[in-house]
Amino acid sequence: MRYFLRRAGFFLATLWAAITLNFLIPRLQPGDPAEAIVSRLGGQSQAIDPAQVESIRKMLGTPDGNLLTQYGDYLAAVARGDFGISYTYFPYSVTHMIGQGLPWTLILVGVTQVVSFVAGTLLGAWAAYRRNSRVDSVITLGSTFVGTLPFFWLALVLIYVFAITLNWFPTGGGYGGGSDPGWNWLFFSDAFQHSILPAVSLLIVGPIGWIIGMRNNMVQTLGEDYARLARAKGLPRRRVALTYGARIAVLPNVTGFAIALGGILGGTVLVESIFNYPGLGRMMLEAVSNRDYPLMQALFLFITVGVLIANLLADLLYGVLDPRVRREEAG
């Protein structure tokens, strides 16, 4: 029980820290942040939109108030889910835009990462089970090689080969011109078609960390006394590998999954940008290039909180899987 309380405590503490970090980042530069941002916007060719100034003020709190009242206002706004109006997608609110992008990212990342984790863990376990065999060499060397390729480059190559040269898939976007988002078959099949290349590029690189981690952990657990005793007990080889090898070796991978999520979400920004995919990552880049600070900040906060929640879930799962931490903190 203590473990779960600790994890919940850590979640709340990091949540607070992330919200505060988000508050502090725009204030890191010297001078009045709102003014600095407005003056930077003034430098652009377009005229400053009053709504934009308003939303920046909202984002930063009352500029003339002291830091503490600004912080209080900011926390209140966050609690209400009020992040102001998006400049890029005027007149929609930031919250509305995040709602638009969220399902795309959630499905693309959720599906590919769960598949990556499961596939990677299984492949790694297989390599460890057949240690020093040809299967092991192919899996370890292959994943090491693929792991060195920059995956946004892989995505470009995929587009070049499958979309431009072979014309099998669309080059980008979330859905084609012929369909409208909604609960209809045409849209779903279209969205599926558009998601294949981004998903594949995430799936090529995704499992690698889990393959190598799982293989190394399992090679280690299979060398431990409990696995040797299981062999001496005459347990079938497969049973030894599963219950005495993989079952224990998967634990560090679960913790690893929690830690790696932050990096994985970073990767989606790249993928979404390359495939022009209508998710949160591309939205963030658009926000950056349009200097849409309210949207950018809210997205950063939102993505971070999403990672924290996923992290908490992975930690809770770990607690269920490892009887040892229920009594004592692991590691």
Binding site: D225, Y226, T243, R247, I248, R324
Partner: peptide
């Protein structure tokens, strides 16, 4: 035998 029992079952 400290380590010869499976820790998770």
């Amino acid at each position: 035998s400290m380590n010869s029992l499976n820790p998770v079952i």
